[in-house]
Design a protein around this nucleic acid. Sequence first.
DNA 1: GTATGCCATTGATATGAATCAACTTGGTCG
DNA 2: CGACCAAGTTGATTCATATCAATGGCATAC
Lengths: 250, 250
Amino acid sequence: MAQAIRLHQVKSPLKASCQQCSLSNLCLPLAIEDNDLERLEDIVQQGRIFNRGEHIFDQSTQFRSCFAVKSGSVKTSIITEGGEEQVTGFFMPGELIGLDSMSGDHYACTAKALERTSVCEFPVEKLEDLTGKIPGLQHHMYHLMSQEIQNSHQLTMLLSKNTAEERIAALLLSLSSRFQRRRMSGTNFSLPMPRNDIANFLGLAVETVSRVFTRFQNQGIIKARGREVELLDVEALQMVTRDFSRQGCQ
Amino acid sequence: MAQAIRLHQVKSPLKASCQQCSLSNLCLPLAIEDNDLERLEDIVQQGRIFNRGEHIFDQSTQFRSCFAVKSGSVKTSIITEGGEEQVTGFFMPGELIGLDSMSGDHYACTAKALERTSVCEFPVEKLEDLTGKIPGLQHHMYHLMSQEIQNSHQLTMLLSKNTAEERIAALLLSLSSRFQRRRMSGTNFSLPMPRNDIANFLGLAVETVSRVFTRFQNQGIIKARGREVELLDVEALQMVTRDFSRQGCQ
DNA sequence: GTATGCCATTGATATGAATCAACTTGGTCG
DNA sequence: CGACCAAGTTGATTCATATCAATGGCATAC
C-alpha cells in the first residue's frame, strides 16, 4: 500500500508547450487564446514521472495541485480509517485528477500510478488566479468539475441498479471509448489495472469479476488473457448495459 | 456543504438581502465583502416558490441557473431513457442545486420539490461573470463543486461496501446533522421524502427500507411513525455506520 | 359515510453475488 | 532450475437483499 510520495520539486527543464501536447484539447478548453495558453504554460510543471505503484499524492498530503495525466494511467481511491479502500476512478491521458480535493487542505483521495505515468502539475493557487483572469478557463474548470459529478452519479447508478455483468460491460465500454479518443484501438487494449481494482471500483468481489470475464469470453463477446482484452462484439456489450435501462420503462 | 438563504417572503423586491438571510454563511463564502455581496444580490432572483411535486427543472430544460434552497427540500434524480430513476441527492435549505449541470446545455438531472419549497435562482452566465471578478466567490464555487464530488464518492462507497442497515443509519445521521445545522432538532424531525425515494437513493428495495426501520425501532434506536422520526440512540446509529469501516482493517 | 389510491408494512420465497477454499498461472529471484 | 509470491481462476456453499404477494393505514374525493 504505502509507496514513496514523490512531491519533490523537480523543476521541469521545459517550460512546456501545452500547444504541442496532443492531449491539449482534452485537458484545456478548445477556444483558449494563444497568449492565454502561454500564461497557463507559465504555471504548469510538466513531465513529472511516476513509476507503477507510486503515489502521486495521498490523503495525508497537503492539497496543492491538480494533475493532468499525460501518459500512463492512475487510480484514485478513498481509504477509510479502517484501512478499507474504495476506488473512485481510473484516469487516462488527458484527464484531470484532484478536482475532488478543492474543498479541503488535504487531498480527498489517494492517487496511485497504475503503470509508468507522466503528469502535468497545476498548482491550484496559481490556477485559481488564472481562471479568475481567463473566463474561458474558468468556464472549463466548471465544466470539468461538473463532468466529474456526473461521472460519479453514473457510477452510483451502476452500483445501485446493475448486475455484475452490466457493470463490467459498462466499464469495458468506457475504457474502450477512452482509448479510442486517444486514437488507439477501442477493441484491443491492455487493462491498466488488476482485477482487484476493477472489482473494488464496481463494488464486486474479485471472483465475480473473474467469472464474468470468463462468461463473456464463453459467449464470444470478448477475448481476455490476463490484462489483454479484445472486444469481439461491441454491440453485444452495449446490449448488456442497455438491457437494464429498458426494463424500467414499458 | 451548500446552504443558502432563508429570508422571509416579506421582502418584496427581487433584489433581496443575502445579508439578512440566516443561511448566508452556508451558501456564500464567509469572507465575502459587503460590496461584493451587493453584486451577488444583483444577480440573484429570490423567492421562487414550488409546490410539492413540482419540477424546478428537468433533464429536458435548457440549463440556465443554479438554485439555492431557501426553505423546503428538493430531490434530484437522473431518469434514463428507459424511464428508470436514480435519485442522486436530497437538498435542504442552504444547499445548492445544479452544479452537476454546468457542463452541458441541458440540466443533467431532474429537480423536484419534496414539499412546498422556495429557492433563490443564480443565472449561471451572470454567476460566472461574477466569480471571475470576485476571487473569494470563485473559490467558493470550486469548494462547493469539489464537495459535491466528495459527497458522491461517499455515496459510492456506501453503495458498494455497506449493508442496508449501514446505509440507512448513514442517511439518518446525515439528515440529522443537516437539520441541526439549521438549528432544528437533530433527533426529532420529519423526513421530507417517501420511503420510495430513500430506497432508490440508497440502492435498496422499499421493503428493505421498511424492514430496517422497524428493526431499528425494535432495537430502540429510533422511533418512526410514517415520516416522523425520532433518533433515540444516536451513538448506536453511529456504531452501525462505523462497524463496517472497522472490519476492513486489522 | 364509503370509495379510491398511495404509501408503508409484513411474510414467504428466490436469487445474485459474497465468501470460503483450492488450485492454476506467470513472473521474479536466489 | 526450482521456490516463491502475487494475481487470477474455478467450484461449493451461504447470505443479504430482491422479488412476489398480501394486508393495513391514512389521506382525499365523492
